[in-house]
Design a protein around this nucleic acid. Structure first.
Length: 727
DNA sequence: GAGCACTGC
């Protein structure tokens, strides 16, 4: 027996002799340094060996034994690792060497808040483990599953994707260990996963949970996970010196511009990153910095170098986004002052995008954040002071390649006493309709007593329950209905899902599929400042007089009729990127429709009810987002029930001011606007809006009178039909 | 008569 075993060890699997979840760092190091890859049986390549030496330089490597001491003995643990610690790439591999998931038909999942991160980290780890991406190591994100069932045992995925999987596998039985990475970002999906896993863990003694975070807020995570043990790993970044202003600044954009110019004149070479809140502000600041920089260069010939000023925000076309990686300009003449790159960015540069070579950060201390007002059911974006954690993250961007400096455009006293410690988690700042539906589908029955790390406002949960009840997703006892169960399967807001599911009844599911896709992607209409007239003219060709929903559908149909051509889109002032994305979303939704045997049908385009049917299906999802014109004519409306005074957004193609409209979005900017609106008949609201349009619940007034009038007309028509039918 | 922080399914 002993001989056979020894023989196996020599020629067979290098993991032979290691006990799952009882391994030591020394054993694992031995396997890593061996000649054969235990996961695919092949000989390690020379590339593997050289990467391995780099891995051993990461701070986390020195703590591998410490990690195993905790991981092997505990079901849950918390890990704090700052930037550069190597936790995201290394910890999942350490788990793989302990779990032996590949021998048990299980997987290790590591979640990320963003798709690009899931993809790029998976690629890196596949290289480190000397396997092909998509085989032993893979990733799973929306629209792309690069894993091989039965072979993949380490899977990087978006947090939203794991949540989706949980809906059809309530104990996440496919996984041996789940690693929630970047938990400090507190995305909605990560928060729900944390609550869910806390419930699953007692029912799955074989499942381990590792929660990884970058902040020092470890205690909160530990407390939440029943005092789970903590492993702390240092980061590896360069020191950043922080400066504050003496006095508070009144105009932070102006102050940011002055700071950039000051750095350019007085500081050593190195690129600058400036954080502002939105695209308009950024474009404006870029112009001003460029102008003043050019002037400085003229006035101090040779002493001040040229500036390259680059804007960065997510709606910027990808080609322009890549300009942030261009090198700083060369000196104008040999021996002249060196040039400098200035990137003026939204929060996208805080977490999502890393720019090497940044040495100076200018931080005015604001970002746009989502806020939800459950009283009027409106989500809006407001420029808000950032948190200390966020300010630290911004400062850290200056120290990635060498020591840097961060200029905060607020006082030290404000930093200490005014900024909150952490940014409020998303779950406290947004509409929860979608989340509440997901939770029910996940089998959470008591939504109020669910163990949230930070419980949302009860009023926000109530609003969500109310909406889902009116839509028919929940019955009056708050239980998920069969309709609700299907709605939850669509990656859409409940209103869109409802509209899509009922669309076959209106013989327009092909069209509603396209519309739902168009409503799920960023705005397709481009309107460059210098070509507004041309852009508006281009849009006018698609405009349908009965509403913007139909206009969107016309755009999609035209896009498809032109074979998805990019030039066509460009010439018509449409975002090709958004249209491609809509096409992609449509395909995914179509597959979900097919999965539930929902018919894909259209009537002939010549059918006079073609567009009416579509608007009726829209009403089925959006009857709670309806408004009634105030007075006989004009642009002022009152939302139904909430009685908010609103105007149709100037971008609407509706110019007839119909008495009733439904809207896709309530935008709170310079004024209350309804964006993407369609004219509807009050009869439709009454017949398709269910209990929400129970007239007894309406206050007396012009709206109720108009609805009652419509109800009588409807009753009359019904009588007519009965009479005709009766004979 | 005007605006689009950022993600995710």
């Amino acid at each position: 027996m002993g001989d056979i075993k020894r023989q196996k060890m020599d020629t067979g699997n290098p993991l032979e002799g290691l006990t799952p979840r009882a391994v030591s760092a020394k054993q694992v190091d031995g396997v890593m340094e061996g000649t054969n890859n235990p996961f695919n049986g092949q000989e390690f390549t020379s590339q593997y060996k050289s990467i391995l030496q780099g891995r051993k330089q990461l701070p986390v490597f020195n703590q591998m034994q410490e990690f195993y001491d905790i991981f092997n003995k505990n079901q849950m643990m918390v890990m704090i690792g700052e930037t550069g610690s190597g936790k995201t790439t290394q910890i999942p591999q350490y788990v793989a060497y302990s779990d032996f998931a590949h021998t048990k038909g299980k997987m290790i999942a590591c979640t990320q808040p963003r798709r690009v991160a899931a993809m790029s980290v998976a690629k890196r780890v596949a290289d480190e483990m000397d396997v092909s991406l998509g085989e032993q190591v893979g990733y799973s994100i929306r629209f792309e599953d690069l894993t091989t069932p039965g072979t993949t045992f380490l899977k990087y995925m978006t947090d939203g994707m794991l949540l989706r999987e949980a809906m059809n596998d309530n104990t996440l039985s496919r996984y041996s260990t789940i690693i929630l990475d970047e938990a400090h970002e507190r995305t909605l999906a990560t928060d729900i996963l944390m609550g869910l896993l806390k419930e699953i863990v007692p029912r799955r003694p074989d499942l381990k949970l590792v929660v990884m975070s970058a902040t020092l807020d470890a205690l909160k995570f530990q407390n939440y996970f029943n005092n789970a043990p903590l492993l702390k790993v240092p980061g590896r970044t360069f020191p950043v010196e922080t400066y504050y202003t003496e006095e508070p600044e009144t105009d932070y954009v102006e102050s940011a511009i002055r700071t950039v110019l000051m750095i350019h004149q007085a500081e050593d070479p190195g690129d600058i990153l400036v954080f502002l809140t939105g695209s308009e502000e950024i474009e404006d600041a870029c112009r001003k910095i460029k102008l003043e920089g050019d002037e400085l260069e003229r006035n101090y010939k040779g002493a001040v170098g040229p500036l390259l000023v680059v804007p960065l925000y997510s709606s910027l076309p990808p080609q322009q986004q890549t300009r942030i990686f261009n090198d700083a300009p060369e000196p104008r003449q040999p021996g002249g002052a060196p040039g400098r790159k200035v990137v003026v960015s939204t929060n996208i540069a805080e977490t999502s995008l890393t720019i090497d070579g940044i040495v100076y950060v200018v931080d005015p201390g604001f970002s746009k954040q989502k806020v939800y007002n459950p009283r009027i059911r409106v989500e809006s974006l407001l420029p808000t002071p950032i948190s200390k954690a966020s300010a630290q993250q911004r400062a850290g961007r200056a120290g990635r390649t060498r020591p840097g400096k961060c200029f905060r455009l607020y006082t030290e006293n404000d930093f200490v006493s005014q900024l909150q410690e952490q940014t409020y988690p998303e779950i406290l700042r947004c509409n929860l309709a979608n989340t509440v539906l997901e939770l029910k589908k996940l089998g959470i029955n008591d939504l109020v007593h669910f163990d949230y790390m930070d419980p949302p406002a009860p009023e926000t949960v109530m609003r969500a329950l109310e909406l889902l009840n009116y839509l028919g997703a929940f019955d009056d006892e708050g239980n998920l209905t069969p309709l609700g169960a299907i709605m939850a399967e669509f990656p859409l807001d409940p209103q869109l899902a409802k509209m899509l599911i009922v669309s076959p009844e209106f013989k327009c599911s092909n069209e509603i599929l396209s519309l739902a896709a168009m409503l799920s992607v960023p705005n397709v209409f481009l309107r460059p400042e210098s070509q507004r007239k041309e852009a508006d003219d281009a849009k006018a060709q698609f405009t349908h007089p009965d509403g913007d929903h139909l206009t969107l559908l016309n755009v999609f149909h035209a896009f498809k009729a032109n074979n998805g051509d990019g030039n066509w889109a460009w010439n018509n002032y449409l975002s090709h990127r958004a249209l491609i994305s809509a096409d992609n979303v449509r395909l995914q939704l179509k597959r979900t429709m097919e999965r539930f045997n929902l018919d894909l049908i259209s009537t002939a385009f010549e059918d006079k009810h073609y567009y009416t049917n579509i608007r009726k299906a829209v009403v089925c999802g959006y009857f709670m987002q309806a408004a009634h014109r105030e007075g006989a004519k004009g642009n002022t409306y009152l939302t139904i029930k909430d009685q908010q005074v609103v105007s149709l957004h100037p971008s609407t193609g509706l110019d007839t001011s119909p008495e009733f409209v439904v809207y896709n979005e309530f935008a709170l900017t310079t004024k209350n606007f309804l964006r993407t609106v369609s004219a509807v008949k009050p009869e439709w609201l009454l017949s398709l809006g269910g209990e929400y349009f129970n007239l007894r619940t309406f206050q007396d007034g012009p709206l109720k009178r108009a609805l009652m009038h419509a109800a009588e007309k409807r009753a009359g028509k019904k009588d007519d039909k009965k009479k005709r039918g009766g004979k």
